[in-house]
Simulated assay, not measured.
Amino acid sequence: MRTVWAGAGAAALALLGAVAVAPAPGWTAAPAAGRPYVYLEGAAGSVLQDTLSVTNPGARPLTVRLTGQGARGTRVVLAARTVTVPARTRADVPFAVTVTADTPPGELRGAVRAAADGRETLVPLHLRVSGPRLAALTVEDVRVDRSGTLHYTLVNRGNTLLAPRLAVRADGALGRRLVDRPERPLPLTLRPGERAARTEAWPDPPALDSVTVRVTATAPGAVPATAAADTVFASAAGVGAAAAALLGVSGATAYAIRRNR
């Protein structure tokens, strides 16, 4: 029994020694008041403020570099880019989030990056931009060039992000449907006030015809927008074929008249 107790005592002493020499927990950066993330809410054009807490549990001073990462339409400005925290001390660093006047209502994400001693940590920023949502989309500058390529511009006239969808239709002079492309999503997102000039290929335009092209754009919450353009296709081959057809008709008519005589 004496041997067993001796072994247990040695193990306990070894455990205590390990605890005594264990490194102190590393530094931390987090929202003040122990919150898991920063939550801010305000209207477009406002400046929102909060505080970041940097804790140094070590036995020596620690210098931490801070960088704000704002979402699109926002800017994060810290009171200091670097902060030196004394040993076993916490430093509180104020910061502000500026929301630009054209930022649409909705949820945004950002972060504050803290770096020291070869390690980085991100403090999440959750931002809610308040205000009524207005979805408005227009189609402008519709035209068709000589190669048959369709040109148009989409404009976001509202205050919220838009994911447009597009449909294209083209009708000939005699009412014949030449193009009928159903509505489909486009690979772009429009910010408020943003314009996007785009093109649509028309691989087989008519050789000779007067055409009306209609472009219709839609987006969730927005009224469908339609714009049209008229164009005339008159290729050399098309004109030649038409002239030949007319000459053929004229010749047949003249022959019929002579025969009747």
Rank of each mutant, 00 (worst) to 15 (best):
V54L: 08
L161N: 07
E120W: 02
N156D: 12
L166S: 06
N156E: 07
P224I: 08
P94T: 07
A256P: 02
G251F: 09
R169V: 12
G42M: 01
A201D: 14
S46Y: 03
D145S: 09
M1E: 12
L174Q: 14
V97M: 07
L13T: 13
T55I: 06
Y37V: 08
G193C: 07
F233Q: 02
S210Y: 10
A30F: 03
R35C: 02
F233N: 00
L66I: 02
T199F: 05
T138I: 04
V76N: 03
L190P: 01
L161H: 05
A111W: 02
R169A: 12
P104A: 10
P192I: 01
L122S: 13
R72Q: 13
E194Q: 15
E183V: 12
R133Q: 15
A243L: 15
T67W: 01
A43I: 02
V99P: 01
N260E: 12
R81E: 15
A6H: 08
R165Y: 03
R198G: 01
V64I: 11
A43H: 09
A222G: 06
D50P: 06
S147F: 02
Y255P: 00
V155G: 02
P94D: 06
G240P: 07
T121Q: 10
G248V: 09
D50T: 06
Y39W: 10
W202M: 00
P31Y: 05
A227Q: 14
G17C: 11
T199M: 06
A20N: 10
D209V: 02
L52P: 00
D209G: 03
A114M: 03
P132H: 05
R65N: 12
G58W: 00
L16C: 14
T218R: 13
G158Y: 02
R2F: 07
L122A: 14
R177E: 12
A44F: 05
A170V: 06
T28G: 11
G172D: 00
A237N: 09
Y37C: 04
G26F: 01
Y39E: 15
G73V: 06
T149W: 04
H151K: 06
P86L: 10
V155E: 04
P224K: 10
V76R: 01
R146E: 15
R261W: 07
T103Q: 09
P203W: 00
V19R: 14
G70H: 02
T199I: 09
D102N: 15
E41V: 11
A96Q: 15
T160N: 04
V19F: 13
G110E: 01
A91L: 09
G110K: 03
T84A: 11
T98I: 08
Q49R: 15
V142A: 11
R119C: 07
G58P: 01
V47C: 03
I257R: 15
G7Q: 10
A29S: 11
T74H: 07
A245N: 05
S147G: 14
T74M: 07
A96H: 06
A30K: 12
V54T: 05
G34Y: 08
T149H: 07
G106R: 08
T89Y: 14
P31Q: 06
T51P: 02
R191D: 10
R184Q: 15
D50L: 06
S235M: 05
V144S: 08
A96M: 10
G68P: 01
V83W: 01
V93S: 05
A244S: 12
T216I: 09
A22T: 11
T103N: 04
R2E: 13
P23W: 09
S53F: 00
A244Q: 09
A254W: 10
T82F: 05
N56W: 02
P220A: 13
